[in-house]
Amino acid sequence: MILVYTGDGKGKTSACTGQTVRAMGQGMKVAFGQFMKRDGQAGEQTMLAQWLGPRFLAGGLGFLRRDEERPAHREAALRVLDWAREQLLEVDMLVLDESLYALGSGILLREEVEDLLARTRQQDKHLVLSGRDAPDWLVETADLVTSMTEIKHPWRAGIKAAPGIEY
């Protein structure tokens, strides 16, 4: 199955982490990669690294802020993509957090994501993708799509990100 967690609200990475825990609880082998996030940025990374060992990779450089950073981000994305292709051969489920951010910013290409989708289906595996702005072609292709919608968020009231809540 192809699962997509998208939308402008909080909870996409949390949904990916929950999906990972659920699959592991069913005895499935899972790999979890993050495209934009650097290692050591968020609490879930600590736990995923403990649970998954080398099947966890936070391979990003942070979010793309300036266009001159694009080549370095593209290189990092290609490293995560190569890792993901290798993992897909070994696991039942591959989770790629912030893959849609990478896709939307042009760091990942549509044909690269389509190749992963095809490999997933050919190998009868599960692929979980997350990030804002899932493109229509992906929504059409996916088996399950959930959109997180922000109703209210504390940062709009000037409250800073909190450990264990935001990261």
Rank of each mutant, 00 (worst) to 15 (best):
P71H: 08
A72G: 06
E75R: 10
E75T: 14
A77H: 02
A77F: 03
L78D: 14
L78V: 11
L78Q: 15
L78G: 08
L78K: 08
R79S: 08
L81W: 06
L81F: 06
L81C: 07
L81V: 09
W83N: 00
A84W: 11
A84S: 14
A84P: 10
R85D: 13
L88R: 04
L88I: 02
L89W: 07
L89P: 07
E90D: 14
M93S: 06
M93R: 09
L94P: 01
L96R: 05
L96T: 04
L96H: 06
D97G: 01
E98T: 09
E98Q: 13
S99K: 10
S99Y: 00
S99N: 13
S99P: 13
S99V: 12
L100P: 01
Y101W: 15
Y101A: 10
A102V: 08
A102Q: 10
L103A: 04
G104T: 09
S105L: 15
G106Q: 05
G106N: 07
G106E: 04
L108D: 01
L109A: 15
L109D: 11
E111H: 13
E112S: 05
E112R: 02
V113C: 03
E114G: 00
E114P: 03
E114W: 11
D115Q: 09
D115P: 00
D115I: 03
D115L: 10
L116E: 04
L117W: 05
L117I: 12
A118R: 15
